[in-house]
Design a protein around this nucleic acid. Sequence first.
DNA 1: TATTGTTATACTCTATAACTATA
DNA 2: TATAGTTATAGAGTATAACAATA
Lengths: 164, 164
Amino acid sequence: MAELDLPASEPFRSVGFTLSSLGYAVARGFTGALVPLEIEPRDFALLRALVASQGDSQQAIGERLGIPASRMVGFIDAHEARGLIERRQDPADRRVHALHLTDAGQELLARAFTIAVAYEQELCGDLSSPEREQLLELLQRVSLQLGLAPGLHAAQGSDEMAGE
Amino acid sequence: MAELDLPASEPFRSVGFTLSSLGYAVARGFTGALVPLEIEPRDFALLRALVASQGDSQQAIGERLGIPASRMVGFIDAHEARGLIERRQDPADRRVHALHLTDAGQELLARAFTIAVAYEQELCGDLSSPEREQLLELLQRVSLQLGLAPGLHAAQGSDEMAGE
DNA sequence: TATTGTTATACTCTATAACTATA
DNA sequence: TATAGTTATAGAGTATAACAATA
């Protein structure tokens, strides 16, 4: 997209193009790395969100992750069926389901973290520590150009760290 | 994913995480930038592929883009209905539909390129020219770690430069 | 018998809106 | 009247496999 010498064919060198395809590949790779745990990146994001806010309501968590209320139902159902998450009645407001990680959920999350760390090391295997820092810094500046909150994430449907 | 001091909450600084979310945001942004042309990134990819190989068969193009034959039918139908692409009978093998860009298709592609260039400039607005080069170089090295052919792209279904 | 393009079918994922029980 | 969670329904997108014409 930068040097528009070509009529319209060869894979041009552009930041937008590269980030888009690389981001997709990274998400797909991470999805693959999580397969042994039988979870996907979206599940990882959910478990992480739960650690940050144990006891919050189903809809509050959903809002933070950008997941509509109706979709949260089945999403939480699946994790509860696996014994990773617990719905607890709020005694003050019986409409509310407060979400909590079970011990099994915390253990699985820990294992997912181990995988995430290993994957990060694999990705950056060719970079020195300062190079990695600089890459992060440059990416950060592109993020700001896009108006992205630095470091925000979600377990949205449309992929994002999920390769499906 | 790099510094695993946190139990599992704050948005950590990791190349994998950043690339995944940024890539998604870039794709979504590019999708938005193309809206005035009433095309999506996958259409842009198709038109580009056609320039590179005018006259190739429908399935050959599909294979290059990673699109199964059955999906190509409706995909090409839509573009033919808009007058952007033409199916021509191959006199030698009457099963084959050779695909060609129409004049309208070439004009639309040119306009899409203009948008892509503008989007690239917007993304890199905060970067100096050497910084941009270095970013591309670092991304390239991460791509190689992932075993990605440098500069390969597709018009796959599962998003990739498409925000849906 | 294999291949190009097509169609039919079924499946996954998702959003929208209606519904319930509480407040 | 509003809200948390649920359910029902319908829509988009896709893959799989069967099919017709041609080789």
